[in-house]
Design a protein around this nucleic acid. Structure first.
Length: 592
RNA sequence: GCGCCCAUAGCUCAACUGGAUAGAGCAUCGCCCUUCUAAGGCGAGGGUUUCAGGUUCGAGUCCUGAUGGGCGUACCA
C-alpha cells in the first residue's frame, strides 16, 4: 500500500515536469513514511517541503499543486495537507486487510525482498582464537553476526558465513606448550606453571587425552624442561616485580619444540586445536549459529598467499625495511602510523595474515565483505582498509561492523570478567542459565555499537518483563486458539476467512493488519542498516497487537464467517511472528 | 596527549536515517480473570534529548566547542 502511494507521487512528479513546474533534470527522492499519529492518516510524504527550493514556492502551495494532480486510486480515500506542508494519505480500511491474503500465500517467503539484488556477501564473525571456550563476550558477536547474515539473506543477498580460525601464531604455541606442561604434571612431574600459560580446566582434559593416547612417551623431567629458561615474572613481597613472563613462555615454547621434536609437538598442537575447535563448533551449533566455512589461517601460510600479498605490496613500493623489520606504509592511506608485517626475527605478524586473508576474500569474488569485530579492535580498521587500497582492491567493499561488549548483571551486581585468570562466564554457562532463545534475543535487541547491560535475572524470568517470552507467548497463544477451535469442531478455513475479511471492522483488527503490512519494509531497512534490533522491536509491537486483540475479542465465536475471518487474521500474525523470530534465531513454541 | 565510539523519562533502551505533540518496557499509581493460557490487557503520572553555539522552512538526528563515560594508541593476537 505504501508502494502504491509512492507510485502515485512518482506520477505526479512526471506531470509537474510536463507542465514545466519542475525542471526536467530534477529527480527528487520520494519519501513515504508511516505516520506516528493516526490523525495524520496512514502515510505521509514530505515531498512538497523537499521541492521548495526547486520550485521556488512555499511548501503548502506546492503541496496543493501535488494534491490536485494526484491520480485516482481506490485504496486512497482522503488526502490532506497538514502542518508545514505534509501530505497525509488516508487509506481504505477494508483494503488494509488485503495483506492477510498476501501473508498466507507467501508464508515463510513473506517479508523477503530483493534490495540485495543477488549480490554476494561474505559475513565473517566470531572468529575467536581457538585457545579456549567461547565466553559471553563472543556471544554478542555470534548472535549479531548470525542475525545480520539471516537478514541479508532475507533481503535478497547471497550470503556466505565464515569463521576465521587463528590456528597459527604465538598464542597457539602457548596453548600447545601449556597443554604439554599439564601433561607432564599429569605424569607426575612437579613444576611451576608459567604465569602466561593457559590455565583453564579444559587444558587438563586435553592433557589427559594425551596420556591415554601416548602414555608417558612425551614426558620430560621437570628440571630438564626448565634448565636455562629465564625467570618467570614474580611479585616479590616488597611489591617489586622480577623476571619476564613473555620471555619465559617464549623460551618454554622453544624448549617444548626441541625436546619433543617436530612430529610430537605438532601432535599436541593439533590435538589441542582440534579439541577446542570441536568444542567451539558444538557450542555455536547449540546457540543456533552455523558457518558455511571455517577458514584456516595456517592454510593461508601454507599456500603462500601471505608471501604473495607481501610481495605485491613490495612491488608497488608500499613496503620498506627499518630496524630489521618490514613495514607497510599504511600512513599513505590515512592510518596513524606505519605497521610491521614481518618482525625482525622473521616472524610475520597477525596483520600480515589479515592482509592476505582479506585479499583472498575478494579474490573469491564477493561483492561485499562484512567483518564483525569487537569494538576494542576499532583501531585496526584503518590499517586493513589501507592494505586493501594498496593492493588495488576495492576497500569500500569492506564493511566492518563493531560490536560493544555486553556487561552482565546478576542480582543487580555487575559480573566481573577477566580472561587472564580463566575466571570468565562462558557462552555455554550463559545458555545453560538463560536458554538459547533468551540469550539470542537479548544480544540483538540493542543496537550493536551501543554498550548494553545484560540482565541475567530478566532473561531468565518467565514473566511479562521478559520480551522474549512476551513474543513467544503471543505465538503460543495463537497456536492454542487454533487447536482449541479444531477441538470444538470449528477449525479455521482460510478460504472462508479471506472471503469474510470485510467483517473485521474493529480498529484493533485493521491496526494489526497495518502492522503486518509493515514487515517487509522493516526487513529491508534493517538489512541495509545491519540492524537486527529493528526486527526485535517490530516483533514486540506485533506481539503487543496480538495480545491486545486477544483481550479485546473472542476469536472462536458462533458466527462462522466472523470466526473464520478472525482466525485467519490471527493465522497471518502467527506467520509473521515465525518469520521474524527465524531471522533472530529464536524459536517459536506452540505451547508454553 | 592523540584517535574512534557513546550520552534520550528514576532504570534499560527506541525514534523509519533531517519531519508534525520524542516513544516502549521496567519501576510507581489506578482498573480488568465465571472467558480461546493473567507468561495477558486498559489507563495515569514521569522530558530543557548532558551543556553552549551554528547550519535551515524544520535538529534527538548534521557542524563546531565544552563536560562526562567506554575503547584504542605494540616488531601481541
Amino acid at each position: 500500500m505504501k508502494q502504491q502511494v509512492a507510485e502515485l507521487l512518482v506520477d505526479v512528479i512526471a506531470i509537474l515536469k510536463q507542465e514545466s513546474i519542475l525542471p526536467e533534470e530534477a529527480s527528487p527522492r520520494v519519501n513515504v513514511e508511516n505516520t506516528r499519529d493516526k490523525a495524520h492518516g496512514d502515510f505521509a510524504t514530505n515531498l512538497a517541503m523537499m521541492l521548495t527550493k526547486l520550485v521556488g514556492k512555499p511548501p503548502r502551495e506546492i503541496a496543493e499543486m501535488i494534491v490536485t494532480r494526484l491520480p485516482q486510486n481506490r485504496a486512497v480515500v482522503k488526502v490532506e495537507i497538514a502542518g508545514p506542508g505534509f501530505i497525509n494519505f488516508f487509506m481504505n480500511e477494508a483494503a488494509k486487510l488485503d495483506i492477510v491474503e498476501t501473508v498466507l500465500a507467501e508464508t515463510t517467503e513473506f517479508g523477503r525482498c530483493n534490495v540485495g539484488q543477488g549480490k554476494s556477501v561474505l559475513v565473517e564473525y566470531v572468529s575467536a582464537n581457538p585457545t579456549g571456550p567461547l565466553h559471553v563476550g563472543h556471544g554478542r558477536g555470534a548472535a549479531y553476526g548470525a542475525s545480520v547474515a539471516n537478514l541479508l539473506e532475507t533481503a535478497g543477498f547471497e550470503v556466505a558465513r565464515e569463521y576465521y580460525v587463528n590456528d597459527a601464531g604465538r598464542q597457539m604455541d602457548i596453548l600447545a606448550t601449556s597443554t604439554w606442561l599439564r601433561y607432564c604434571q599429569h605424569c607426575g612431574e612437579d613444576l611451576v606453571f608459567p604465569s602466561n600459560g593457559y590455565k583453564g580446566d579444559y587444558i587438563f582434559d586435553i592433557a589427559k587425552t594425551i596420556y591415554e593416547d601416548k602414555g608417558e612417551a612425551l614426558r620430560h623431567a621437570s628440571d630438564v624442561i626448565f634448565t636455562g629458561i629465564c625467570e618467570d615474572e614474580k611479585q616479590l613481597p616488597s611489591g617489586e616485580k622480577t623476571g619476564d613472563k613473555e620471555a619465559h613462555i617464549d623460551a618454554l615454547i622453544a624448549r617444548a619444540k626441541s625436546l619433543l621434536g617436530e612430529a610430537a609437538y605438532r601432535y599436541i598442537f593439533d590435538l589441542a586445536l582440534e579439541t577446542i575447535l570441536a568444542d567451539i563448533r558444538e557450542d555455536l551449533a547449540g546457540f543456533g549459529v552455523e558457518f558455511e566455512n571455517w577458514f584456516s589461517e595456517r592454510s593461508l601460510m601454507d599456500s603462500g598467499v601471505i608471501d604473495a600479498a607481501i610481495e605485491k605490496l613490495q612491488a608497488s613500493g608500499k613496503i620498506y625495511e627499518k630496524n630489521g623489520a618490514l613495514w607497510f606504509r599504511s600512513t599513505d592511506y590515512g592510518d596513524e602510523k606505519d605497521r610491521v608485517v614481518v618482525r625482525d626475527n622473521g616472524i610475520k605478524t597477525y596483520f600480515a595474515s589479515d592482509i592476505a586473508y582479506h585479499f583472498n576474500k575478494l579474490e573469491r569474488g564477493f561483492d561485499l565483505l562484512i567483518d564483525i569485530w569487537g569494538s576494542d579492535h576499532h583501531g585496526y580498521v584503518p590499517r586493513v582498509k589501507a592494505a586493501m587500497q594498496a593492493l588495488d582492491t576495492n576497500a569500500d567493499a569492506l564493511e566492518v561492523l563493531l560490536v560493544q561488549f555486553a556487561i552482565l548483571y546478576r542480582g543487580g551486581e555487575k559480573l566481573a570478567m577477566s580472561t587472564r585468570s580463566g575466571q570468565f562466564v562462558t557462552l555455554r554457562e550463559l545458555r545453560d542459565e538463560v536458554g538459547k532463545d533468551a540469550a539470542r534475543f537479548f544480544y540483538v535487541q540493542r543496537k550493536s555499537e551501543q554498550h548494553m547491560d545484560f540482565d541475567l535475572d530478566l532473561a531468565k524470568s518467565k514473566s511479562n518483563e521478559n520480551p522474549v517470552y512476551y513474543i513467544q507467548y503471543a505465538h503460543a497463544r495463537i497456536c492454542q486458539v487454533l487447536s482449541m477451535a479444531e477441538e470444538k469442531g470449528a477449525a479455521v478455513d482460510i478460504q472462508q476467512g479471506l472471503a469474510n475479511l470485510s467483517l473485521l471492522t474493529d480498529e484493533v483488527e485493521t491496526d494489526l493488519a497495518t502492522l503486518l503490512a509493515q514487515y517487509p519494509d522493516i526487513v529491508s531497512r534493517a538489512a541495509l542498516a545491519y540492524e537486527p534490533h529493528q526486527i526485535a522491536y517490530y516483533l514486540k509491537a506485533l506481539a503487543q497487537g496480538l495480545h491486545s486483540y486477544y483481550n479485546a475479542s473472542q476469536f472462536i465465536v458462533e458466527e462462522a464467517g466472523l470466526r473464520h475471518a478472525r482466525l485467519t487474521l490471527v493465522l497471518a500474525v502467527r506467520q509473521v511472528l515465525q518469520n521474524g523470530l527465524q531471522v533472530l534465531g529464536v524459536s517459536a513454541p506452540e505451547k508454553m
